[in-house]
Amino acid sequence: MAETGPFPAPPATSTDREGREIVVDFATNDDLEGLVDMYATFDPAQRAQGIPPAHPERIEPWLKTVLDDGVHIIASHDGCVIAHAMLVPDSDGSHELAIFVHQDYQGAGNGRTLIRHLLGAAQVEAIEHIWLTVERWNLPALELYKSVGFETVQADRFDLEMAMSLPGS
């Protein structure tokens, strides 16, 4: 069954399934360096649809472009960024969601923690419509998106498109 919210908003502290203390908060300008470091060691095999960029020198320009607008939250452990989730506005008043969890912190419930707080942040920001695309073989991601209420809206492309509407406040 999909969760229907309301979702918790950052900041928050939780313990992941490996017993690590994870802090979730909004990203600030000071987090750029920490984000670059996380993406620099991101497993290339887990890149999805061309991001994060494969070339290290292209990570920072990409981050600066997306961080320019929208809602960004990060999860940290021992002061190091271990995950990043974002809602970036498109030209139709909707927001595209993307989420990245460093491979060392996957399988421990951190993706779920992060996306729930991102949706909580979206409710605070009165964002109502969110969409995303996901490679159809990425089953863990698909399950995660479904579990928080995303539904498939476009299935006849290579990448599935999913969307959800958050109840207005």
């Binding site: 061309g50 970036v88 993307a98």
Partner: peptide
Amino acid sequence: GRQRSPTGKAIFGDRAQ
């Protein structure tokens, strides 16, 4: 025919697909 989404994802356009 691949375009960038707002988050920077490369997405195939209909024609390329």
